[in-house]
């Protein structure tokens, strides 16, 4: 047995890390079942009842029982709308960024071209520069571009181009590409070109070789890149904040708006659902990464 595993220090550190990482999440989820609307202290779970019974800020009974706040959430038109926006942005940006990011990874692996080092480094930049800088940059780009286009095309009124779902999706695609590329590159590292050569040697042209040999071999990497892009898009706040427009509110933006008023257990319920989705996604990534080529 590894001697470090027995050390009290290692154990303590492990427990502390888990505590600080997961205690907030556990409490957050617990408070989604809180009977108190003000949600400052935990007032117990909500019992089932025929009708909703309120007593001040306390919920005494609800047809949904402990899941009262989840039901409220489902009835909330603003939430469902924001959820729909969030998912449609996440799906579209994941699909497109996965395709582009995978192609970039393949190109960087197999071709020699001028500016190759530059291209590789430029992948890290969006990851390391502060998100707020990216957000402002993208905002400036869009507003300048749109005002130019609007005056060039003579658009006015509702026809004017402006911020909205399209701009949020485009910016999510932009910031997801480097992540997808890096994940796929990690998968491609040590990918032996002899597999592709073997396929061609056996009579497969470039296209068939890609779909029958290369793609199945890199698929776990592509999928985990896609899941990463998906979770990044789901919970992005900063860049979305700068690029969103009327009718394009996403869940993080919506929650932020709620926080400025009071934090009802609805927010906790929403967060609990969210954590579950992301948790499942991370589990899936893990399984894919561990799968052997």
């Amino acid at each position: 047995m590894n001697p470090y595993q027995r050390s009290w220090f290692v154990r303590l550190a492990t427990i502390l890390v888990y505590f600080f990482l997961y205690a907030p999440i556990v409490i957050l989820i617990l408070f989604a079942f809180n009977a108190s609307r003000t949600n400052i202290t935990f007032q117990g779970f909500i019992p089932y009842g025929e009708r909703l019974v309120m007593e001040g800020s306390l919920v005494r009974a609800s047809p949904c029982g402990p899941f009262h706040w989840f039901c409220e959430l489902a009835k909330n038109r603003e939430v469902t709308h924001a959820a729909r926006n969030t998912l449609s942005i996440a799906f579209t940006s994941t699909l497109i960024s996965t395709i582009i990011g995978t192609m970039a990874a393949l190109a960087l692996q197999r071709y020699e071209f001028r500016l190759k080092t530059f291209s590789q480094i430029s992948l890290y930049i969006p990851i390391v520069i502060p998100e707020i800088v990216m957000g402002i940059g993208i905002l400036v780009l869009f507003t300048q571009l749109f005002s130019l286009l609007n005056s060039l095309l003579g658009l006015s009124g509702d026809a004017r181009l402006g911020l909205g779902l399209g701009t949020v999706t485009a910016s999510h695609i932009a910031f997801s590409i480097p992540f997808v590329t890096l994940v796929v590159q990690a998968r491609l590292h040590g990918f032996d070109k002899s597999y592709e050569e073997a396929a061609m040697d056996l009579g497969a042209n470039e296209w068939v070789t890609f779909w029958r040999v290369t793609f199945p071999m890199i698929l776990p990497g592509v999928l985990s890149g896609a899941l990463l892009a998906f979770t990044l898009s789901l919970d992005d706040f900063v860049i979305t904040f700068f690029t969103t427009g009327p009718g394009a509110t996403t869940l993080p933006i919506y929650v932020y708006g709620l926080l400025r008023r009071i934090i009802t257990p609805q927010v906790n319920a929403l967060s609990a659902l969210w954590v579950s989705v992301v948790f499942l996604a991370v589990l899936a990534i893990q399984r894919l990464e561990n799968r052997q080529v």
Binding site: E197, A198, M217, Q292
Partner: peptide, 9 residues
Amino acid sequence: FQNYALFQH
């Protein structure tokens, strides 16, 4: 091939 290059999948 020297490393056989068998398709693992």
